[in-house]
Design a protein around this nucleic acid. Structure first.
Lengths: 240, 240
DNA sequence: AAGTGGTCTAGACCACGAG
DNA sequence: TCGTGGTCTAGACCACTTG
């Protein structure tokens, strides 16, 4: 239980990494309370203040939630939270919208060279490709392709019950928490295929979003390309 | 110099607000070093640890920079930093691009109802409108309209020497630091006017970006609408 | 009343940068 | 060598939640 002190690595960072490991391996599950700061300190052989610093880091990371008088809780990725965080389309009055996923196809294949590069892997790699058609208020909203590292999601290609919100599913079934993502956006003209799938004229403006999603260890675990019909919707972001 | 202890407001928050005020009023100017943690604590009548907590907050806010062994410095908004932070277009290889501003027109007028609402002001309000045409590598890149609260930028409408990067200019000339912004993005089809200004076909896909920029006090001080020809450029963002 | 996280202090020592 | 921020500890008290 106690930490092996390694020279030149601050104690609170070791505590933080230890806790991350324990959340990953299921020792502390989403929704439940961690031991108190004093208890954790006693277990790990450090002071309460050191545990505290680690917990503040983890809260800033978005891994846990601290509530005065109640305790410290592992954050559960609910479909609602995930939508709010990673699906950022809203109406002109600012109200966020939630899409519906109608069709999805899933298959496993070898990674392309570009995909291997994106996953920062030099060895051969199997990936799982998910294609989805997403709608909102009975109209086509987006065409989406999701690429996953097959080794991180064993058996996912055999699942025929993929939910609308994938990130809570990743967390519950595979212990993978998506915490950050990098996106590249551009305006494109609809191709014939896209126009047909999204029920717009060829050449109509579409918003293309290419995403690299990272887990708790900052590994890139998902690639995603989405093409949206924005219409009078907007894609809302914060720069800070 | 010392703080007036107000019940129910933590000391470190009072220290933080005090330091923000002092940065705003020019007591500590961008680029210079603050007094050490112990000196600040002695001046304000609190312990070094309390000052430290305030400084950690300010660093997370992006207001200061702390360097071990050297000191704590007020961040200077350089054109480079500002570009990197708030101008997020890049080439397909990931290299950030820097635009050139060719024409700009500036005038003062009354705020529209929508603008008053955006600035969260119920009273009448004068605004300054800046229109800019921005280019990259000899091609049109964007048409931009910037709306400022006239009361926050006294005399700016008389300036005929607006620089390419406005945010460092706001900081140096008006002591206003832009720290955060909210943006709403959408893909639109070029109107005839836009097509002519940006040298594309009418109907070509453009990326529209509507920004509300906030200062150190979280006040909305600038509205901005930009319309970009993305082509093979992308607008890069982080979700976290 | 008991237990949790939040604030505040004081002091010791370490790591880094500059003279 | 000195002064800075960075880590770590120990202890006191406050604010909030639950039983």
């Amino acid at each position: 239980m106690a930490l092996n002190r390694i020279e030149a690595v601050p104690l609170y960072q070791m505590v933080r990494e230890r806790l991350i490991s324990q959340i990953e391996d299921g020792t502390w599950r989403p929704g439940i309370a961690l031991p108190s700061e004093f208890q954790l300190g006693a277990q790990l052989g450090v002071s309460q203040g050191t545990v505290r610093k680690a917990l503040i880091d983890l809260e800033a990371l978005g891994v846990i939630e601290r509530k005065q008088g109640r305790g410290t809780f592992v954050k559960a990725e609910t479909p609602e939270r995930s939508m709010f965080h990673f699906f950022r389309l809203s109406k002109s009055d600012g109200e966020r919208i939630a899409p519906l996923t109608l069709q999805s196809r899933i298959r496993e294949r070898d990674a392309s060279r570009a995909e291997k590069q994106a996953f920062q892997s030099s060895a051969d790699l199997a990936v799982v490709e998910i294609r989805r058609h997403r709608r909102f208020e009975d109209r086509p909203l987006a065409e989406e392709t999701v690429i996953l590292r097959a080794d991180f999601f064993p058996g996912i290609a055999l699942r025929d019950d993929l939910p609308n919100a994938l990130y809570p599913f990743y967390q519950q079934e595979f212990h993978i928490s998506i915490l950050r993502a990098e996106e590249r956006l551009s305006a494109i003209a609809a191709s014939k295929t896209q126009a047909k799938a999204l029920d717009v004229e060829p050449g109509a403006p579409l918003l293309k979003v290419e995403r690299k999603a990272r887990d708790i260890r900052d590994r890139i675990v998902e690639l995603r390309q989405s093409v949206f019909v924005t219409g009078d919707l907007t894609y809302d972001i914060d720069l800070s």
